[in-house]
Nucleic acid binder design. Structure first.
Lengths: 233, 233
DNA sequence: TATGGTAATAAGTATGTACATATTATTCTG
DNA sequence: CAGAATAATATGTACATACTTATTACCATA
């Protein structure tokens, strides 16, 4: 019997994946302990641990102390979407990015927005609307509310040069947030801006970010018709 | 000066995040070397390494050998979507899952499908269409092609009891795949099945999985009106 | 038969050391 | 002075060891 000698956590990782894929270890089955695998592979337990931890992070293995490690019964595919700044997205497609501020005012948000952002109902927020363009075509329509209590500097910014997107990333860090993807039929006014027929189905991204207990910004991006987000699994 | 003593990689992780969020370390700036941080935190370099590696994985730090570690200028938000089996999704909402096979046949796919799956244009594939239900409401409409060369057993399976989704997970592992999200206006026939008006905007998920160099299955899920995918960042 | 304590166990983590590797800076050579 | 060889350096990884922690299994007690 050949002893392949697994010397890196990558090779252990690959070998374990291979055994899962070839069903040498079947879904729902326990796999050997770290110590046993380390002995078999001729490496340290830490190396096996590193490899198994990596795989467990993808959902293909379930690990619990004392219980051990088992192959997931119904692996939950984890798709990691990279949500870049729109400028980067456009430029990555080899197109020229431009953006255009449509409206900027400080006003009271709708009740739903105030509730989502956890701000007082009568508190005014900065409301921005802008169009992101790729070359000469509309790319996405942005509707954003900024919590001036969390980002006071935003009140003095015109957002003519830098997009709100980039300005906020630079000036208003966030600790966590929620993001949601959905589909919507465009309204007439959105259709005009995005240069498509009213009622067309468009991809919508809603994002709400927080800095600690303060909401920072809530943004809704309505992408042009035909937009898709891709990820590898 | 108080010496907090960071003894776990978690606490180091949190402290580094805190420094980034409070802008003690600003975007684009280099941060101290692992060895220096280890000395400052009073822990081993491996502990610091673990913490920094974790943060780098989220895109908030850029690390390069010799060059060192810097805070990312424009962090790319990484949203991890959990794509579970539809049964789990429905049951997690506290609803009863049912599915209904609409059509099952072995036929030649459209040219685009054959091209995407890398199969010969005249090769027949298993074509499945099914409706996933949550309680009594339609949840998603599935249109699936299965490569029988990669999964010969699928030819003898009726998919009446278990959904193709679950059957394939159990019987046809995949090594990698691509996934894409988009929006579409429903056709009349889709509208009938999903119980909505023709032309309504719906969320669409396309997934293509591979086992090594063989395509396994290509599936298009058209979700009922109003469906959204959520993730935390 | 419950129940609560205890021992056993497997993963989780920390550490010091050593070496690997990628990249930059420097020096040497033509 | 250009380009190649070389040194320096920061992260990347491997390993042996030791200890921690969550969880299970078992056993004793009420």
């Amino acid at each position: 019997m050949t002893k392949p000698e697994f010397r890196s956590w990558q090779s252990v990782h690959d070998e374990v994946l291979r055994r899962i894929h070839t069903r040498a270890w079947k879904p729902g089955e326990m796999i050997p302990h770290e110590a046993d695998l380390a002995a078999e592979f001729g490496c340290a337990r830490a190396t096996v641990n590193r490899a198994l931890r990596q795989i467990a992070a993808t959902g293909l293995l379930d690990r619990r102390r004392k219980a051990g490690t088992r192959v997931a019964e119904q692996p939950v595919a984890k798709a990691t979407l990279d949500i870049a700044v729109i400028r980067q997205e456009v430029e990555a497609r080899g197109q020229r990015y431009r953006h255009q501020l449509i409206d900027r005012c400080i006003e009271k948000p709708p009740a739903a927005t105030a509730a989502a952002m956890g701000t007082d109902a009568c508190q005014t927020l900065l409301h921005l609307r802008a169009l992101h363009m790729a070359d000469t075509q509309p790319y996405a329509l942005e509707d954003r509310w900024v919590n001036l209590a969390a980002v006071p500097d935003a009140a003095h910014e015109e957002f003519a040069e830098t997009s709100s997107n980039e300005w906020l990333l630079k000036h208003a860090p966030y600790t966590h947030g929620e993001i949601s993807f959905s589909a919507a039929n465009v309204s007439q006014s959105e259709a005009d801006a995005l240069d498509c027929a009213a009622g067309a189905a468009v991809f919508v991204l809603d994002r709400l970010t927080w800095n600690g207990s303060f909401s920072v910004t809530k943004v809704r991006l309505v992408f042009a018709e035909g937009h898709a987000m891709r990820a590898v699994i």
